[in-house]
Amino acid sequence: MRMPVTAAQTVGPFFSIGLNGRLAPPPRPPQPLMTGCIRDGDGAPVRDAVLEVWTLANPHAVHFQRTATNDGGVFAWALGEDSTALLELTGCWTVLLFLRGLLRPLLTRVYLPSHLPPAHDLVWSRIPLARRATLIAQEIPSAVPAYRWDIHLQSTLDGSAETAFFDCASAE
């Protein structure tokens, strides 16, 4: 008998009480890092977001890192010493985003301009051409690899495009 999956609810504004005990240590320069700002439909920074970053460690297991935005809506996660090797394996970082005002999490990905997937890639090929740029991080000039990737929950009047978000399931 199939049992119905428990419904999701928002993480709310006070998640740090329960979730911050397992935050990954913040990146410390000169550690390679990914950073950016999360903004809402008014362009306002989202100061109460949790990002869970899932990266392929080997074909059967994923690294998991949790980070949260600060009062400026800015997040950062360390790419780790093995990030280049990981990137060869996975090509991207998968991100689950939780925040007040989201009744269920958003799923997205970030790619590096130097490691874009081939045209036939199972996921990349499904993303409309016009929206792919929202998933490509920009290199920050730096002695170590550092990238910037901003997340826009909605398009804004100043021309920022809504980040591409996914719905992932194996059965239609």
Binding site: T10, R22, D40, G41, D42, A44, V46, W54, T55, L56, A57, P59, H60, A61, V62, H63, F64, T90, C92, T94, L99, R100, G101, L102, L103, L106, L107, L122, V123, R126, I127, P128, R131, L153, Q154, S155, E162, T163, A164, F165, F166, D167, C168, A169, S170
Partner: peptide, 30 residues
């Protein structure tokens, strides 16, 4: 009715993707 969704929920449809090793792999959760 949940007013925070107005500016925080994406307005474009979600893009359907099949699961890959990333979405199916066991998390090494601390």
């Amino acid at each position: 009715p949940y007013t925070s969704t107005a500016k925080r929920a994406p307005l474009e449809p979600l893009i359907p993707i099949p699961p890959t090793a990333l979405e199916l792999g066991s998390p090494l959760v601390p």
